[in-house]
């Protein structure tokens, strides 16, 4: 899938939703629980289950990234499935807080 910043992505096996913060120029295969994710606008009601080896889960409000791919997603609804790009699980990012400015 070709991602763009601000796009929302949904899992088809659980309630996981993410928003694209940083998008690579190339197409990328995003999966949740081992099953391909889709644009949230076209998302069907989730069915099936995450694969047994892809149940790390996601946490609300956390960032997930793959530096090598130049991809960063932010979790807006958590779920059970592991989110992966081109087969490699995304890595949970630490906070990079800026001082509150307003």
């Amino acid at each position: 899938m070709k991602l763009r910043p601000g796009q929302q992505i949904a899992s088809t096996v659980d309630g996981t939703r993410l928003i694209v913060v940083r998008a690579p120029a190339e197409e990328v295969a995003l999966t949740c629980g081992g099953v391909e994710m889709v644009d949230a606008k076209q998302a069907p009601a989730p069915s099936g289950v995450p694969a047994d080896d892809a149940r790390e889960g996601t946490q609300l409000g956390k960032r997930y990234a793959a530096e090598a791919l130049g991809i960063e997603l932010l979790c807006t609804k958590p779920g059970e499935g592991t989110v992966a790009a081109n087969g490699t699980p995304l890595v949970l990012q630490g906070a990079k807080p800026l001082p509150a400015s307003d």
Binding site: P5, V21, L60, G61, L74, A95, P97, L98, A100
Partner: peptide, 25 residues
């Protein structure tokens, strides 16, 4: 919507404030 959401996601960490924190505008 995309300007404001991008601003928030780009500058603030979700749920980062302690529950004693209060902001005065």
């Amino acid at each position: 919507h995309r300007n404001l959401v991008s601003y928030v996601l780009g500058t603030v960490e979700f749920a980062a404030a302690g529950d004693d924190e209060a902001s005065l505008m």
